[in-house]
Design a protein around this nucleic acid. Sequence first.
DNA 1: CAGTAATCGAGACGGTACGTCCCGTCTTTAT
DNA 2: ATAAAGACGGGACGTACCGTCTCGATTACTG
Lengths: 206, 206, 206, 206
Amino acid sequence: MNQERKLKVIQSTNKLGRPRDTSRDLVIIETTLRHLTLYGYEALSTTEIAKDAGVSKATIYRRWPSKRFLIIDAFKTLPRLEVPNTGNLEGDLKDLLDQLHFLFTSTYVLPVLQILTGEMSHDEVLQEELLPWLEERYYPGRAIIERAIEKKELPEDIDLETAQSIVVGPLLTMVSYSKTNIDEEVLTNLFNFILKALNYKSEEPE
Amino acid sequence: MNQERKLKVIQSTNKLGRPRDTSRDLVIIETTLRHLTLYGYEALSTTEIAKDAGVSKATIYRRWPSKRFLIIDAFKTLPRLEVPNTGNLEGDLKDLLDQLHFLFTSTYVLPVLQILTGEMSHDEVLQEELLPWLEERYYPGRAIIERAIEKKELPEDIDLETAQSIVVGPLLTMVSYSKTNIDEEVLTNLFNFILKALNYKSEEPE
Amino acid sequence: MNQERKLKVIQSTNKLGRPRDTSRDLVIIETTLRHLTLYGYEALSTTEIAKDAGVSKATIYRRWPSKRFLIIDAFKTLPRLEVPNTGNLEGDLKDLLDQLHFLFTSTYVLPVLQILTGEMSHDEVLQEELLPWLEERYYPGRAIIERAIEKKELPEDIDLETAQSIVVGPLLTMVSYSKTNIDEEVLTNLFNFILKALNYKSEEPE
Amino acid sequence: MNQERKLKVIQSTNKLGRPRDTSRDLVIIETTLRHLTLYGYEALSTTEIAKDAGVSKATIYRRWPSKRFLIIDAFKTLPRLEVPNTGNLEGDLKDLLDQLHFLFTSTYVLPVLQILTGEMSHDEVLQEELLPWLEERYYPGRAIIERAIEKKELPEDIDLETAQSIVVGPLLTMVSYSKTNIDEEVLTNLFNFILKALNYKSEEPE
DNA sequence: CAGTAATCGAGACGGTACGTCCCGTCTTTAT
DNA sequence: ATAAAGACGGGACGTACCGTCTCGATTACTG
């Protein structure tokens, strides 16, 4: 599972000579994330990152072919959603919303995702590189729904694609475009909305 | 209402001298939108826009202080949501989803919004400039919900902020991160999900 | 004689309409000379001259086809050498050196001449325009020599071209490249040098 | 002595990193001299020089802070007068006039000197930078006169400043403002004029 | 004495150079 | 071979000026 978080740096092909200092990888990535969040994609400069990270530009370009790929790799080091497994849909959904809330408010995920989404809009290479990877992050949404269907907590004929967009979309939109503080109450409202949207019947009353 | 769509170009200070050629404003804006969609924020070059629009750089910088403000203004010329008024929530929601679908698939709105969202993440000026304006676009979502509450089509205690995020969020997320084609069926699924989420009871109690 | 000093402004061909305001010619020329002396050829800007002279750029370009010709015309308004006629070469030469000294230290002539000399070096149009006119200024040097030859004050076989360069050249070079103050003594030294160079024999064989 | 001819390029501050390619200095200087002579100060464009020299603008601006200083440096690479030492004033003066003639007709010296003289007229920085350096070129004139005084070839009380202006001034003025071809005869005339002006007595006839 | 037309100041226009900065590559010495 | 340092060609930035143009207002002559 950690496997997937490995950096996609260009690997050295040669075994001769001085070996790469892998600690540099991390410093560069961290500096990149910081700059990206502070200045955005355009104002981000490899020259500046190199200075700030105490690294030469060659050291950066030896690992990544361009600014774009450095940023992609930086993004991929960010924390990801974990598939919840609480036993029922209610618990799983609550857990997922909490995870999303955490990612969007306490990590670099939101700004970097937004910046890369902007870049993806006109960059097919970036799309091909990132979309499958983003699906991984979505997967938890889909996974808990599939499990709920198996358990008959949800009707069989539910459309997975739409269903998972209902789980992630509203929260992402709120953190992106609303100044409203996302507190426990909002999360609870959202939780209820989603359950109702999915036609979830609480197990007990039956 | 059209007032708000007026370009925020730097206005000439007095009435002396040769007046600005307003037709240039439009050519520049259109060229900008085209380039923005094709090349993105970073690769967008005022030098190129000037050449392509058959205009001098001075003519651009006379109107907008920098690339960033040119893009903001370009965004503001894009079509907006209109408040539906079909008589009931079902009709309004259907209309709204159709409008959103159209905006996201047949206009420049989606890429430009994504690019600007990325820029907003680290640029407070841009946020202050754009967020209130985006709220305008959201407003239709809120408006139809408020109207439905008045008409008792929806329960009174519904949270507006969350509710409107349910209307726009899933679709925006789908068009941004899913390769799924958004067809009539998907829209219908979404429509049903939203109505259920909002606890909407069809008027004719079947 | 004043004929030659007339400005070469483009004349209005039409007798209809509002007549040119000739007072503008002078204001522009004077502002040009001031700016030329203060800022030089390159930094001289018609935009700035227009502002400073309280005139529009069109008013300038209606009279002169370009910056270059404006400057030429400005130069031509500067005072010129007058042919001395004191009765003998000694008096004439003294008078001429005094005139040159005055032109070089109390008027705009020196800086403007230097600037235009620099421009002439690579601009044939300017050469053709200015060289004959400069010869006019030289002419006094040649004139007094020719007169002295006629009067047998100077040998017949003297080379006019070289002779006049001896009259003007040293002083021009000194004011251009030496920080030495040109006082009465220097002028007297120069005066004596020149007379000796020309093989002048004082009439009253002392 | 060669020390003084070294370019005043902005020196790299330390010995780390890729060293400056000094061959670029030369290409840039040569291109500058060519353009200066062809197009003059104003029309000279660093952008064009860069293109023509196959060099980037950064490479130019890394070495010189502006066009002006590039030109100054270019001027300083031009050949200079050498102090003649033939044994007597006659030989030295002949040699000097020949050198001047060569410099003014077969090198870039004249146009560049004229252009810089024009710029100096309103630019104190340039004056302070160039005048002492020009004095070096004059020095040969002064040097041969001083030597002649020591040798009693010339009277003791001669004014050096004026005397050297007689050596250089007439020729400079002729090449600047006269279309006359400067041939052997003109040089001989000038030579004789100068010797007479300085009161030189040929050694032998005595 | 109203109509006409060139003039005026102001400033917009296309074009182009300025000097700065960044990209991604290359070249040096040291490890 | 890798490291830091920084030079390299290329090219965009935002500013400023050139010489042209277009606007409303002014100012003489014409009819």
